[in-house]
Design a protein around this nucleic acid. Sequence first.
RNA 1: GUGGAUAUAGCUCAGGUGGUUAGAGCACCAGAUUGUGGCUCUGGGGGCCGUGGGUUCGAGUCCCAUUAUCCACCCCA
Length: 417
Amino acid sequence: MLTTSPRGTQDILPGQSYKFQYVEDTFRDLCRRFGYQEIRTPVFEHTELFQRGVGEATDIVQKEMYTFSDRSNRSLTLKAEGTAPAARAFVEHNMQALTQPIKLFYITPVFRYERPQAGRYRQHEQCGVELFGTLSPQGDAEVIILADSFYRQLGLSHYELFINSVGCPTCRATHGEALRQALGEVLTDLCTDCRARYDRNPMRILDCKNERCQELTVNAPTVRAHLCPECEGHYAQVKQTLSDSSISYKENPRLVRGLDYYTHTAFEFISTGIGAQSAIGGGGRYNGLIETVGGQPTPGVGFGLGVERILLAIEMEGVKIPEPQPLDVFVAALGATASQAGFSLVQKLRRAGLSAEKDLLDRSLKAQLKFAGKLNAKRVIILGEDELTRGIAAVKDMASGEQQEIALADLEQALRK
RNA sequence: GUGGAUAUAGCUCAGGUGGUUAGAGCACCAGAUUGUGGCUCUGGGGGCCGUGGGUUCGAGUCCCAUUAUCCACCCCA
């Protein structure tokens, strides 16, 4: 126990961390181009925020939260998703008083008590954006296009975008009634989960993956069929805007996401071929959320994308992530005097902006060269007593193997080339 | 939370029906080269055989529990 990380967590070692950095850097750059600014919220929040924001009836709140009491008996919960905390910050910092819309992005760990498997962890990294303060269908389209651009920028293409409209509270109530009527007779044949959903949130029955439930509900009324004219118009415009932007999507009238705050547009990006946990991103509009967490009614739309799953997709598609920069120069020294001089030289080169390294284990010259090769050094400066007294150094190009003598005073300039 | 599979060196894996000092490849270290990497050759260091218990004269091997990983369900990213 002492020597293993907790279940569902992982150490991201240097051989992997540069890949996370690459994905995150790509996301930051894209967000900058789309005008989104970073927000960093605490890694834990008052439990109540998720209960109210995400919804008491959701799986996340009912069985997946990491909830604990602190020493003052406050109930706190590790960040279970990114949107509710962002909405809380929006309210707390009075962002409705600022120029609208508010465009935020985040890169954050998310914690959920789930059974781990490929592509599913108890702590994972999410990149997300939240666009607050606009009802425009162009807002929905913008965040979807941002996510799509992100995948494209990373070189992914084996994925599909599914969209749906889950309506507003008004049409959802109408639909719920219609669903209850249609399913009343088969209620006892539905799975236990769906029987519970029947009362609490009948819409989610349509999203059940149980084969039997799918058969029974194949002709059940979808939300689509009960959208009010306003929701219908909004959805049509979102689709139109996506089409105008050459974003291909598929409609899935049964797409209902497992967080209660969604209204109108819901969407998911599904990767093909990374296993059962294939959703590499998802989101939607949440026009009631800000109000739910105590703010003035403010519309919003956003998404969350799973970094680990994106990396799985990158691997599956054979996309190459740029390797870390090779080492500019390795200083190999012979003997104590040269070693001290080499140490100073390394600092000087680093100050000059070069990446420079030196042996710290008193290795033989041969071993130092081998080490330099392993570090992928472009050049090695060889420094012995002989070179020191002559005021020069041997500079070896590791790719060609060629070696030349350069005056110590000219080293920096020579290495810049 | 449910069902199934797996767990041997840093990594990938061998180790018929229980039987002496548990092996290989790669990786690591050193030597062949008294101051020159990659290739080659030689040698070396590394393993509470996931953990705990049981059966047995004897367990890496059989049984039970536990933990972890993987797959499916559920859900999500």
